[in-house]
């Protein structure tokens, strides 16, 4: 969970400089490296700090159940290695964990897709359509950015009880979408507003309706922003614990399932370790796959 956060921070901090690099003199380059030295050192320190527990988790997950409490990580890399994939094969045979993984996928993918659709439609409207009260409404959306989701837990809990959304995947999806929307609309609107007006006007004259402009121009041109919003939302909701814990009983995502394996005395480390690592690895893979768009999106929103 933590490693993916680090990767995001590192990429965002370093990439823009690399991309902006123009041909420059040797002296200027050395000067820049020196100037950036403290920053690089800081980044390395942070990376190591995050990486140590992540690797610890990986090694632990590879130890046989009987060894976990009695020996240490060096048994994995030492000779002879006692590393084993037993824990992982046990994990994949565990119905509860696999069900929870499937639930997590449904929640994370479902709410991300729904959020991207709604946020990009709303972002287009805020950026390019004239309607009364548009600017005020947008201010309200910005205001909602600072509302912490904890304040909504109790009212929505009772709402869900009344509407039958409690303990359903749909209920969790809707909650995540609702709390992702302010940021999503904000990001989309700002990105879409940067698309040159002439292009949209030209499409209108070419005979395109608003719907067509949205599908044929806005979506393809907004891809970087859409990708970064999707990654953000996917990571946040994949790792969510509090919302799922509040609104689910039998509908358990992976985080809740892992959490429920902890005991007051002697937790099932041989199950928790590989499950945690799996839960960490999937979003990491997703992030790395879309990293290019992600960085573009971050840049596109700010640097014009």
């Amino acid at each position: 969970m933590s490693a993916s956060g680090e990767a995001a921070g590192g990429a965002v901090a370093v990439r823009p400089r690399a991309r902006a690099a123009h041909p420059e003199s040797r002296a200027a380059r050395i000067g820049r490296l020196v100037a950036r030295g403290p920053l690089n050192i800081l980044l390395i320190v942070i990376a190591v700090l995050w990486l140590v527990p992540t690797l610890g988790l990986l090694f632990t997950s590879l130890l046989p159940a009987s060894e976990i409490t009695t020996s240490g990580w060096w048994k994995v890399v030492g000779q002879p290695s006692i590393a084993t994939f037993e824990n992982y094969s046990a994990l994949f045979d565990n119905r509860d964990i696999m069900d929870a993984l499937w639930t997590t996928v449904q929640i994370a993918v479902g709410n991300t897709v729904l959020l991207v659709i709604v946020a990009s439609l709303a972002g287009y409207a805020f950026a390019w359509l004239d309607f009364p009260g548009r600017d005020w409404l947008f201010v309200v959306v910005i205001g909602l950015l600072v509302v912490p989701l904890q304040v909504a837990l109790i009212p929505i809990f009772s709402l869900y009880n009344d509407t039958g959304l409690f303990d359903t995947v749909l209920g969790l999806v809707l909650f995540h979408v609702a709390f992702g929307l302010p940021f999503g609309i904000f990001l989309m609107r700002n990105f879409f507003a940067g698309i040159p007006r002439d292009i949209l006007e030209s499409a209108r004259i070419d005979g395109a309706s608003e719907a067509r402009i949205f599908v044929r121009l806005i979506l393809p041109l907004g891809l970087p922003a859409i990708a970064s919003l999707a990654i953000f939302q996917f990571l946040w909701t994949w790792n969510d614990l509090i919302v799922a814990l509040t609104f689910g009983r039998d509908t358990q995502p992976l985080t809740v399932a892992i959490f429920s394996q902890t005991r007051q005395f002697g937790s099932n480390i041989d199950l928790i370790a590989p499950a945690s690592f799996l839960s960490l690895a999937i979003p990491l893979v997703v992030f790395l796959a879309f990293q290019r768009y992600f960085v573009q999106g971050m840049l596109a929103g700010s640097v014009k």
Binding site: P196, R204, I205
Partner: peptide, 20 residues
């Protein structure tokens, strides 16, 4: 009449080509 039904074509100063 909205632009799309006016049956006209326009060339913009910025050209306004569709970049993608």
């Amino acid at each position: 009449v909205p632009s799309r039904d006016r049956d006209i074509a326009m060339v913009f100063q910025s050209y306004a080509l569709y970049p993608h």
